[in-house]
Computed example of a mutant assay.
Amino acid sequence: MKQIIYSLLALIAFSACSSSTTTENESKDQEEKKEDWIVLFDGTSTEGWRAYNGDALPPGWVIKDGELTYDTEMGLEQDYTGGKDIIYGAEEFENFELYLEWKLPKGGNSGIFYHIPEVKESAGPSGLAPEYQLIDDENYASIHDLTSYNKKMGETENLDQLQDWQKTASDYAMYPADQSQVDLNPVGEWNSSKIVYTPEKVEYWLNGKVVVSFVPGSEDWEKRKNSGKWSGAPDYAKAKKGYIGLQDHASPIWFKNIKIKKL
């Protein structure tokens, strides 16, 4: 009789433990669902991606070894006259957290756009959408002549060098990345970037650190917008909802693990 009682008690204890574990797992699943990521590129398909103002990917944008890359030689081989910036055209995003990983070659240059409006008479996102800059901070100036461009932008010192607002993880031509927080991996190695956008605050992350923070549309933001590169671009950052895009700058570029979460 005692053995039967002990067996029943053990069964009850096991059931309680199993029920507790199930509840914990259900709770975890529910929490994960609340924070669901939308995968924009999983390494196997370019579904959703296309040229800005186009129906398909421009020549050169391909998947290699599970990475979304721009192959410059392939891009130049074909007779193509349209722009080569690409967008994830399946959905527009408003408030979000965007994460991706990327790497550049020596002298490489690219960028991440967001809130892109698709304007038929526009050649591309630049001048319309904010850009998280991607560039080879260390070697770019030694390969490309920046003097005339920097003069045009009103710079007066170190004209042959990248200016702070041109460097990686900057809000291009608006908010320079905090160089004390920039920990950039060498060319050919992977870096991770994150953009968190809300109307109250925008954050740019690089390799796990916040390097840019600003309030969109603030007095400071307006001052910067109206006194710099975008002073002659009335539609710059006007859209508060739009597509995510990747920039072609005639440079090889590699991306992977691209995902976004709506906030």
Rank of each mutant, 00 (worst) to 15 (best):
N191D: 11
K223Y: 15
L134Q: 13
Q166I: 01
S192M: 12
S110E: 06
P105E: 14
E157D: 15
S192C: 03
D171S: 10
G124E: 13
W165E: 13
S193Q: 07
Y236M: 05
E118F: 11
K106V: 13
K225Y: 11
G124Q: 10
R224Y: 09
K229N: 11
H115K: 13
A237R: 10
W230H: 05
T147G: 09
Y204K: 08
P125I: 11
T168Q: 06
G242E: 02
D235C: 07
E131N: 13
Y132T: 08
W102D: 05
V215F: 02
Y149G: 11
K167R: 14
T156G: 04
A239Q: 05
N158I: 03
I135V: 15
G188D: 04
D220Y: 01
K201R: 13
G108Q: 09
Q181N: 10
P125V: 11
R224T: 04
L128H: 12
Q161K: 15
A123E: 09
K223T: 14
D235H: 14
L162M: 04
K151G: 10
N191R: 02
K120R: 12
K201V: 13
S148Y: 09
G154I: 06
V215S: 10
D160P: 12
E189R: 00
K225R: 15
A141G: 12
Y140F: 15
I116E: 06
E121A: 14
D235M: 13
Y132M: 06
E189C: 00
D178E: 06
A173K: 03
S126M: 13
S148F: 07
W230M: 03
K223W: 13
V211L: 08
D171P: 00
G108F: 11
V187E: 01
N109W: 04
Q166N: 03
S122M: 12
G232L: 08
E203P: 02
L162W: 11
Y114T: 10
T168L: 01
S218Q: 06
N150D: 03
Y197D: 00
S110K: 03
E222G: 00
Y175D: 02
V196M: 09
I195D: 02
L159C: 03
F214V: 07
G208F: 06
L146Q: 08
S218F: 06
P117K: 14
F214H: 15
L104A: 10
A233S: 15
G111M: 10
